[in-house]
């Protein structure tokens, strides 16, 4: 969903640029609490993985393709604030080095595919975690569902931006239907990739998945009462 130059007018592009800059500024301050000796080495690698996966367009219905956005997966693996930094690096490199996504649209793309998918992905993930059983097996499921939801929401945010500053006069109802429709399908791919990637890391080193920490903490506490051991999953 890389927005090229020209789709949105200058004021809207400046506004999204400011929002992106503020978001990155806040993330730079907040991410320091997420990065410890365990997670810090992985942050750059998650950025590299998101970049690589974004090259893999998969076909969806009707001669259309889609690719991972990556906010949900980054948030679950390394935390939401680090996730903002990770995805922003990816979109900046894509725009500057690969002419993928406009330069004036860089703020827009960071807002849509970075801030939005990180925020929605993380909030949905945490919401699901609150209601699902506290076992490691549910972590990739919650991550996958959160990733799925984040993509159509990002497409809705695009429609919102287009309503404010689109350079062509497109009926908003039609645009909304078309954007959300195709991005529900792309979201399925995002969900599957996120499920598989989070599940893979979780299988070998659950402690490296930040989103699994509450589960790991709960499990340690549950081991003590003799009766409660049955509810914990075997390592």
């Amino acid at each position: 969903m890389h927005v090229p130059d020209g789709f949105l007018d200058a004021p809207t592009s400046v506004a999204t640029g400011v929002v992106a800059a503020v978001g990155i500024g806040v993330a730079l301050r907040k991410a320091r609490h997420e990065l410890d000796d365990r997670t810090a080495p992985l942050a750059g690698l998650v950025a590299a993985f998101v970049f690589a996966t974004q090259m893999l367009n998969f076909p969806v219905a009707g001669g259309t393709s889609g690719h991972l956005m990556g906010g949900a997966i980054a948030a679950v693996l390394v935390g939401p604030w680090t996730g903002v930094l990770v995805t922003s690096v990816v979109f900046a490199v894509q725009a500057l080095l690969f002419a993928d996504g406009g330069i004036t649209a860089l703020g827009t793309n960071i807002v849509l595919m970075g801030l939005t998918t990180v925020a929605v992905g993380w909030l949905v993930f945490r919401g699901l975690q609150a209601v699902l059983p506290k076992t490691l097996g549910w972590v990739p499921v919650a991550a996958g569902v959160a990733a799925f939801v984040s993509v159509p929401v990002a497409s809705l945010v695009f429609v919102g931006l287009y309503a404010v500053g689109g350079t062509a006069d497109i009926p908003l109802g039609t645009l909304t239907g078309a954007m959300v429709g195709v991005h529900l399908l792309i979201g399925l791919g995002e969900g599957v990739i996120t499920f598989l990637a989070v599940g893979s890391i979780l299988a070998v080193r659950p402690d490296l998945v930040r989103g699994a920490w509450p589960v790991l903490a709960a499990r340690t506490l549950e081991v003590r009462p003799a009766k409660a051991t049955a509810t914990g999953t075997p390592a």
């Binding site: 730079l28 990065l35 080495p41 942050a43 750059g44 590299a48 090259m55 680090t82 930094l85 080095l97």
Partner: peptide
């Protein structure tokens, strides 16, 4: 090249 550049920048920011 993209993977390595992103890795370098991402690790640098971290």
């Amino acid at each position: 090249v993209g993977v390595l550049v992103v890795l370098a920048l991402g690790s640098g920011v971290t």
